[in-house]
């Protein structure tokens, strides 16, 4: 009896130490398993087209209101300060922002502080402006200034002399010959500046050099990647009147924009943010699961060490 009991106990102990050993072994889990988990967590919701409803938060509302409150037909500057790498996170908000500005009848001036930002602005003009607002005429309703090297130096110069920084637009036409830019030579002549920013130079530089130079002249709004937002939060809502944060911010803003300014076709272009929230949810749950697993492994490893002693 005693023997049997001892045997059971020993078998239980072996089983328990086996599980503990397995859990402890997870500490050194090959990271390729984690990579596979992430691929599935992101890939499956994309294939299933998992889309979830969003409730617009205060920052998305503030951005929406900033564009709503300036008079229709105002001159607006949109800086595409990102590149294809962060396109996945930022393009949805760029689409919604351009559609919103055009729906309000604002005249849009596009520019880029990142070399590849100009191409992304071109893409947005093609996909959104020409698709949903065919009445927009280049030179009269919108202008593409293109990319200019010099980082924050470009902003600094533009506060006093836009034509020195951009004598021509991207197609080579002299700025003085473009009706929309006629007589415009300072950033303070814009009613609103929007920057979609993935890092340096970006929203922070616009706050420091453009808003810093003439804080009351225009409204400044920004869209940023999730990782960069901690640097921008100190500027919201005083210097940055609106702030869109990553895919969630884009999804919330898209909801507000499409609710007021729906489009008849190609709605998908203005739903990209919401579509990306499904994979994001599953990926976040996976990360939480991994953190829990990592901690269980750590506790099991401690227990195993204690047992060994």
């Amino acid at each position: 009896m005693t023997n049997t009991s001892h045997s059971n106990h020993s078998s239980n102990a072996t089983q328990s130490s086996g599980i503990r050993g397995f859990l402890a072994g997870l500490s050194s889990l090959d990271r390729r398993w984690i990579f596979l988990g992430v691929a599935l967590a992101v890939g499956i919701p994309i294939l299933l087209k998992l889309s979830l409803p969003e409730v617009p938060g205060p920052m998305a509302r503030a951005t929406f209101n900033a564009i709503e409150k300036i008079p229709s037909g105002s001159r607006v500057l949109l800086a595409f300060d990102y590149d294809p790498a962060s396109q996945g996170e930022l393009q949805p908000m760029a689409n919604a922002l351009v559609h919103h500005c055009a729906s309000r009848g604002h005249n849009i001036v596009f520019m880029a502080l990142w070399p590849l930002g100009k191409q992304l602005a071109d893409k947005t003009i093609k996909d959104v402006l020409k698709e949903f607002h065919p009445e927009y005429v280049e030179g009269t309703n919108y202008v593409q200034l293109g990319f200019k090297t010099g980082n924050e130096g470009v902003i600094k110069l533009m506060t006093t002399a836009i034509t020195e920084q951009y004598p021509n637009d991207a197609s080579g036409a002299a700025l003085t010959d473009i009706p929309l830019m006629s007589g415009v030579n300072k950033l303070s002549e814009f009613k609103l500046i929007g920057t979609i920013s993935a890092g340096y130079p970006g929203a922070k530089e616009w706050v420091q050099y453009a808003d810093g130079a003439s804080p009351e002249a225009f409204t400044l709004v920004a869209g940023s990647t999730g990782v960069q937002v901690s640097q921008l939060l100190p500027y919201y809502p005083k210097q940055l009147e609106g702030l869109l944060v990553a895919v969630k911010g884009a999804a919330e803003y898209e909801m507000l924009v499409t609710e007021k300014y729906p489009v008849a076709r190609h709605q998908g272009r203005l739903e990209e943010g919401r579509r990306r929230m499904g994979p994001q949810l599953v990926a976040h749950l996976l990360v939480i699961g991994l953190i829990v697993l990592g901690n269980v492994a750590m506790i099991a490893a401690r227990g195993a060490k204690g047992g060994a002693r």
């Binding site: 984690i34 990579f35 691929a39 590149d83 790498a85 990926a283 990360v287 991994l290 697993l293």
Partner: peptide
């Protein structure tokens, strides 16, 4: 696509670093 792929690698590394 190449730069977007490089950036997307972050999702994998964030998960592995968090773990």
């Amino acid at each position: 696509p190449l730069t977007a792929t490089m950036f997307a690698l972050l999702a994998f590394y964030v998960a592995s670093a968090a773990f």
